[in-house]
Simulated assay, not measured.
Amino acid sequence: MEWKYTVDPTAETPVMLLNNDIGVDPTTLNGIDGSLFQAELMALDAMKPRSIEVWINSAGGNVDDGYNINSAILLSKTPVDTVCLGMAASIAGVIFQAGRKRIMMDYSWLMYHNPHGGDDQKLLNIMKGSIAKMIARSGKPEAEILTMMKKETFIYADEALQYGLCDEVRKSADHNKKRLTMLGEPGEVSNFHKQANAVLNKLLEKPKNKIMIKVANKLGLNQDASEDSILSAIADIQNKAKSDLEAAEDRVKAKQKELDDAKDEMEKLKKEKNSMKEEKDKIQKEKDSVEAAKNALQKEKEEAEDAMLTEKCKNMVEGFAKAGRIKNDEKTISFYTELAKAEGGFDIVKDQLEALPLNKIAPVINLGKDEKPKYTFAGQMGVIANKLETQKNK
């Protein structure tokens, strides 16, 4: 097999180099073929070395190729450690999290962001969730990882160790030191190094830029702070400002949600109020309907009672007409019937009609010598007629 990404496949711990963009550019044919890297790692696994190391210095690239490499590391029976030697950004940072042991040099850094490219938003959302799950091997909650990806977060080695995104940080100062032969007494070598470094630094030292001194003072740093330290401090300020802005936006969203909830509650109360008004109107309508029905029944009752009284009076008057006491025609019968219907009129009309002789002339009531008649039949009929007229005018 031709080994393209492995330094020495026969080594006790072979090293595989992930030191380019992930995915082959069809134009330049440059980049790491994810499927080929996967096949090569599986071949190493079959050779049963003690362990495998994947050295990473990549800006990321094609997610599909990254899946192949990530899966090969996870499914290898041989323990695979990942080592970040510079940058492990985007999908390369995701692959870094697949290692059994995740090691970073003190100058290296990680970067995570949401996947992008293409027009299929649904596919991008699926990839975002998938990548978040792969990073979640670090033990961080997926929600926190998704927030980190959304902000396009850069993480230095010491921060990665603190956040649980790596297991070890190797100090670059501990590697590749020049070894001097022991000259003189023990301890002289280290003294020689200090003196030599001091001389060398003095020779190479450049005049400090006054502007940089002012910037360092403004940032609260020592005047001798390096440009990297200043840039790091500025990056921290930018990240904090970005975090503060996002926190402010979150608070605005929370307040907007409270306002929307209050509006919804007001709308709900308004609907309840309208519903109560409709129910009240319905009850009032039912009440009015019952009252109308009651009035209709009362009217029917009064009409029935009036019809019964009319029938009673008419039957009485017709009896006297048939007996020849009054004229037997419709007008006369109607007149006496209406008089009899007046309040208290029935008995009076009956008594008077009974007192009429058969020749229809009212009898004269005989009184004492000095007495005047208190009433005559005609007079009494006038009283009844007046009562009847009064009742009609009420």
Rank of each mutant, 00 (worst) to 15 (best):
M127K: 07
I348W: 02
T181A: 14
Q223C: 03
M1Y: 08
D370A: 09
K178P: 02
L309C: 09
S130K: 15
I230L: 10
L74Q: 13
E142M: 13
D45L: 02
Q195S: 11
A72I: 00
I237F: 11
P357D: 15
N20K: 12
Y107K: 13
K387N: 06
Y163E: 10
I95L: 08
V24Y: 04
S275P: 00
D347P: 02
A216R: 07
L18R: 03
L231I: 07
L183Q: 14
A43M: 06
G344Y: 05
G187M: 12
D81G: 04
I103E: 05
K294A: 10
F154K: 13
I91Q: 07
S243W: 09
L17Y: 01
L356M: 14
G118M: 09
N295P: 00
E227T: 13
L161H: 09
N62W: 05
G184I: 02
S76P: 03
L203K: 12
K322P: 01
D119Q: 11
L231H: 14
C84A: 14
D45R: 01
L358D: 08
E2H: 12
A136Q: 04
N328E: 12
Y163A: 09
D306M: 15
E354F: 10
A196H: 14
M105Y: 07
W55P: 02
N68F: 10
W55Q: 09
E53A: 06
E318M: 14
A196S: 14
K277D: 01
E278N: 12
E371V: 09
I211R: 15
D45Q: 03
D25T: 06
R50Y: 10
R170D: 02
D64A: 15
E311T: 06
K312T: 06
E2Q: 15
I283T: 06
D158L: 03
G23C: 00
P141I: 06
E302F: 05
A143H: 12
K285A: 01
D158S: 10
E152F: 08
N70E: 01
A296P: 00
A304W: 07
W109F: 06
N295V: 07
S138R: 08
N295D: 11
L165C: 05
